[in-house]
Simulated scan of single mutants.
Amino acid sequence: MRPKVGVVTLGQSPRPDMVGEMRVWLGDVEPVERGALDDLTPEQIAEVHASNGEDALLTRLRDGSSVVVGERAMVPRLQAAISRLEAQGADAVLLACTGPFPAFQHSRPLLLAERLLVEGAAAVARGCRVGVICPLPEQEEATRRKWSDLFSHLHVAVGSPYGPLDALRRAARRLREARVEFVILDCMGYTQAMKEVVRAEAGVPVLLARSLVARLAAEVVA
């Protein structure tokens, strides 16, 4: 039997836009999806918005629309999704969101996209002038806090993975003007095609969260 990795997304499953592309890097590992908002109605989803002072997180719903949710309301729903995938026989579970979360209970290896991205970026870009692109303007401050301990020369720009590509192009050009040497796309929503757009505009290497995370997940499970 093929090894299985449970993929927990912040929004709703299936996510062919993300998991479909990740299959290339997962190789022989079979992804099994579960979304934290899978069983919620539109009215219930509207209730998990970010409160004042809470970190906002951007995710995608089954119908292709995007929604901003709050971290605190998502934690128990993410825990339920992790537990369900373990019960379904996943060999490991990947939390496919690059936002930070508190510890979760788990009985199988739990791979946190946020930690894999941070440690991977530290390994390849330490000492560089680094630019980070995040999805939302309200995430800029949290993004600076997240990366400032690793990179003393840090620049943050905003461009949603679920909006027009022009926003990403503008963000990449701003980072180029800041003379960064490396760009990090800090959201699992960014695609390989978006990475290529940013690399063309910024003129420097670009680290794509979903490819890094999927490759490491395959190493653990395969």
Rank of each mutant, 00 (worst) to 15 (best):
R126V: 06
Q88A: 13
L111M: 03
A125D: 09
H106T: 05
R126W: 08
V118H: 04
R84P: 01
L94G: 13
R84Q: 05
S83N: 03
P102I: 09
Q88H: 11
C97V: 09
A81G: 00
A81H: 00
V75E: 07
S83R: 00
E114T: 10
M74P: 14
D91A: 05
R84G: 01
L78E: 09
S107W: 01
F104W: 08
Q88E: 13
V75R: 09
A123N: 08
A92R: 00
R72F: 14
S107C: 04
A87T: 01
L110Q: 06
I82M: 07
F101P: 04
I82C: 07
A87E: 02
R126N: 10
V93L: 11
L112F: 03
P76F: 11
A122P: 01
Q105M: 07
R72Y: 13
V93T: 12
E119P: 03
F104A: 06
F101W: 07
L112S: 09
P109D: 11
V93E: 06
Q79L: 11
A103V: 12
P100F: 06
P102L: 09
C97R: 08
V118S: 11
S83F: 00
M74S: 15
H106G: 02
L85V: 02
R77Q: 13
L110F: 03
A81D: 01
R72W: 15
V118L: 14
E114L: 06
E86W: 00
L112G: 05
P109K: 09
